[in-house]
């Protein structure tokens, strides 16, 4: 079986890995780099819990082969806070608005929400709902998630 040498750039650090070609970016982050903030939900591309940024754009880590992500800048929830540990404004807004219950979907929600604001797709609550529709929350914390994102968008 083939073993691939894959160099991943994750949260500004370079990692050299030897991987089975079947390894997804999601599995590489969690199982090989110990970055378990990115969650496995459906592992199917439908729930959004594995959302990370690839070259600055939100994508689903379960549908990207790790080998395909080589040479691209990957950012996960672990890379969001400032160097001194100060939470990213979106993380702070999720806390302030209690935008979660069980918290399992939250890393994906926050990564998606950061992009939603950066893309300019958070101008109204309806627009936030539309552009966050790829992130499911089975606890249905949606109203507070929308409020948190709207807050950050207003401050931006």
């Amino acid at each position: 079986m083939q073993t691939l040498d894959v160099t991943l750039d994750v949260n500004g650090r370079t990692h050299s890995l030897q991987l089975d070609p079947r390894t997804t970016l999601l599995d590489a982050l969690r199982e090989h780099l110990g970055l378990t903030g990115t969650k496995v939900g459906c592992n199917h591309g439908t729930c959004g819990s594995c959302t990370v940024h690839v070259d600055g754009r939100r994508q689903l880590a379960c549908l990207v082969l790790a080998a395909s992500a080589a040479g691209r800048a990957v950012r996960t929830i672990e890379g969001l806070a400032a160097a001194d540990g100060t939470p990213h404004p979106m993380q702070a807004a999720f806390v302030a608005h209690d935008a979660l219950q069980c918290g399992y979907c939250t890393p994906g929600q926050i990564m998606s929400a950061v992009s939603c604001v950066e893309e300019g797709h958070a101008r109204t609550d309806d627009e936030i709902r539309e552009y966050m529709s790829g992130n499911l929350c089975r606890c249905a914390a949606y109203p507070n998630i929308v409020a948190a994102i709207a807050d950050v968008a207003r401050a931006a």
Binding site: R58, L63, V64, S115, G134
Partner: peptide, 9 residues
């Protein structure tokens, strides 16, 4: 179609 994450990929 799809979601923004999917449309980006």
């Amino acid at each position: 179609a799809a979601s923004q994450q999917l449309r980006n990929a």
